[in-house]
Simulated assay, not measured.
Amino acid sequence: MAEQYKISAAMVSEERSYVLKVDGYSRAKALLKNGECVDSDPFSVGGHDWAVLYYPNGDGDDCADFISLFVSFESADAAEDVKAKFAFSVLDENGEPVSSYSYTHPMHTFSSKSDNWGYHKFIKRADLEVSGHMRDDCLAIRCDLTVIHDKETIVPPGNLHRHLGDLLNNKDAADLTFQVGGQSFSAHRCVLAARSSVFKAELLGAMEESYAASPIEICDMEADVFKSLLHFIYTDTVPPVLDVVMAGHLLVAADRYNIGRLKMICEEKLCSHIDSGMVATSLALAEQHGFHALKKACLKFLASPSNLEAMMASDGYEHLKSSCPSVFKELVAEILPAELKAAKDIIMTMWK
């Protein structure tokens, strides 16, 4: 009945901070040219290896006056890309982040074939050198790296119908008893009212007092039909094998209690299983209860002369003729050829 759903949610993360210390800031600046870097020792976050790349003279011609700083994804053998977010902060002499030199980068997907991401112009060297945030020619930069794991959660199929079905079968907290065809059925007032506007009016509305007595007798319905009706009300399912006869009875019951989905299921079942033996009964049912789709399907089936002859020889023909004589004018008009329009008009007025 229900389907499984898969939900991908980035909710599991692992965070780690790594401090890059550049002892001998001036020496590194003198020795490394523009485009050359120092790699930090690798560190592990989220099951992957990472490093910080430090370019004292920038990583390109357009940033030669800046320090460039990047996070490098070192797990070249990773099976999948990895999502991570990171922040770089210059630390003052007390090891605290300097807010004016702290930058947070939003989440980035690092390629499994190695990747790096960061800031070409992280900080201008001239500004850093006069800031007073270095001691003994030592620069400390903290990298806060958070790896986001996509965790696929499989949500099991809904089981409300199963729980309500158990409630019906176990009769737990049942507050109603119905007497149908010599059998007793326990049910729950609130469930019936929630599923059927007719039951709601009868059990909770102005008619509530007349239904206060127990058991409540249901006439003109077979016990097995009422049992199937209750089963649908509680579980929203019909029997696994729904035969045409039961579909007809359930269609009438669903119409009586205004259970729209059950009406559609049963009417579709009858429409798709029309034969010469059942068509007269189905047509009578459709005419008496106003099931328009079923009536249309029956008339279409009987437009064939051979089907019409077979229907007239069936057990249901006499019942159709006696209970719904007016339907024959539509039937005759349906099978007459189009050129006999005048005859059709006469026939359509015969039963007025």
Rank of each mutant, 00 (worst) to 15 (best):
L168F: 00
A140G: 08
N258K: 15
V82A: 03
V71S: 05
K321T: 05
T146L: 13
A174E: 00
V332H: 12
K171I: 02
A223I: 04
V147S: 12
N159L: 09
A194K: 12
A64L: 05
A10T: 12
D23P: 09
G46I: 02
E3G: 12
D65T: 11
L262K: 00
D81E: 03
E267R: 05
M207A: 10
D49T: 01
V71A: 04
G260Q: 11
G260P: 03
D77K: 02
K29R: 11
V225D: 11
I346S: 15
S184Y: 14
E74M: 09
M1Y: 06
N116G: 08
M246S: 03
D136K: 04
D175W: 02
C266W: 04
M11D: 12
V241Y: 08
L229E: 05
L340A: 06
V191Q: 06
T237V: 11
I216L: 04
K121Y: 06
E222N: 14
D61V: 08
K263E: 10
D65I: 01
A303R: 14
D39K: 13
A310S: 02
F66L: 01
A28N: 04
A51Q: 15
E267W: 00
P156E: 04
R195F: 06
S40H: 00
S282D: 14
M348S: 11
V279N: 05
E209R: 07
D224P: 07
H163M: 03
S214E: 05
H149Y: 14
Y103E: 07
F185A: 02
E330T: 15
E287C: 14
M107I: 07
I233F: 05
C219G: 08
L128M: 09
I67D: 00
Y257P: 00
E268R: 08
K344T: 11
T153W: 15
E80Y: 06
Y211G: 03
L294H: 05
A206K: 15
